[in-house]
Simulated assay, not measured.
Amino acid sequence: MHMNSAPHLLTEDRADYERILDDALRTAHDRPGVDGIGERLNAEQLRTMALNATALITGAAAAEYEHFVKVREETRTSAASSVSRSVLGPAMGEASEAGAGFGAVLTVLAPVLAGTAALIFLLFGYILKLVSPEPAFADTLLTAGWFFGALTAAGILAAAIGLLITALRNGATQVPAEDAGGELPDEVARAREAWRHALLERGILPFLRAALADPSVDPASPTPPRRVNRIPKIGYSGPEFSSPSEGSTTGSRPTFTSPDFTSPDFGPPEHQPE
């Protein structure tokens, strides 16, 4: 089962269309004009017909849908611009902003450099401690090693705090999801609700009423019915007409023959008839 592609219905909104259709079919027995589901056409047959007629049904609410899409795109563009300014603003700043970037790089590199220096000084210091006689600067190397070790620990702590602050800042500027549990902005929600209402009242319900009221839609017939009223052509073909068979005659038909005409004989004198 495939749904026809509606030129004005975006892929992300087709789930809404099917959801509204399913709700209408589920509550059809409480709606006038569509409470006869099951007598001649069942819900699944009507659903298939409505999915194949997506372009016709959604066209009834085209104005509301265009407004909904426009408001939604404007909201998305505005939210994306706000996030871009919050993220790219520090990078586009003046000298103070550049200094902040240099500080961030230094915060990352300081623990690495200090840790490397601490490892080298401690390694050579303890090796010299094993030599006999012990060199005088072995204790100096150990002291320097422990000093750089302390710098490494401080640098790691500072980097962790910086990452935490960045995560909190990004979380505050994150754009909320529009669906799947997230709430839509008020203007978008109102436009969406207006489209859904128009789609149901002016598109889906009139289509279902027309389908149920059309006597030519016979699900038991092996030949698909013809198109009538507002019911779209859903893979149906019109009745086949054939010309009368060649052998059948409705009556004798007189036969006429045209008279034979001959042209007069013309020619020079020597060819005159005798």
Rank of each mutant, 00 (worst) to 15 (best):
M3S: 06
M3F: 06
A6T: 06
D13W: 05
I20G: 00
D22V: 09
D23E: 14
L25G: 06
R26A: 15
A28V: 01
A28Q: 00
H29L: 03
P32L: 07
P32N: 12
R47C: 05
M49I: 07
A53H: 03
A53F: 00
I57V: 02
T58D: 11
A60W: 03
A60M: 11
F68S: 14
T75C: 05
A80T: 06
P90K: 06
A91Q: 10
V108G: 09
L109S: 14
L122G: 04
L122R: 15
S132G: 09
A138H: 02
A138R: 08
L141K: 00
L141W: 06
L142D: 02
L142I: 15
T143L: 14
G149Q: 11
G149R: 12
A150Q: 05
I156E: 07
A158T: 10
Q174L: 00
D179W: 00
G182V: 02
V188R: 00
A189Q: 08
E193I: 04
H197V: 15
L200T: 12
F207I: 03
L208A: 10
A210R: 02
A211L: 00
V217A: 08
V217F: 13
T223Y: 04
T223Q: 07
V228I: 09
I231W: 12
P232C: 11
K233G: 10
S245R: 15
G247W: 13
S248R: 14
T250Q: 07
G251F: 02
D260A: 14
G267Q: 09
P269D: 13
E270C: 09
E270T: 11
H271C: 07
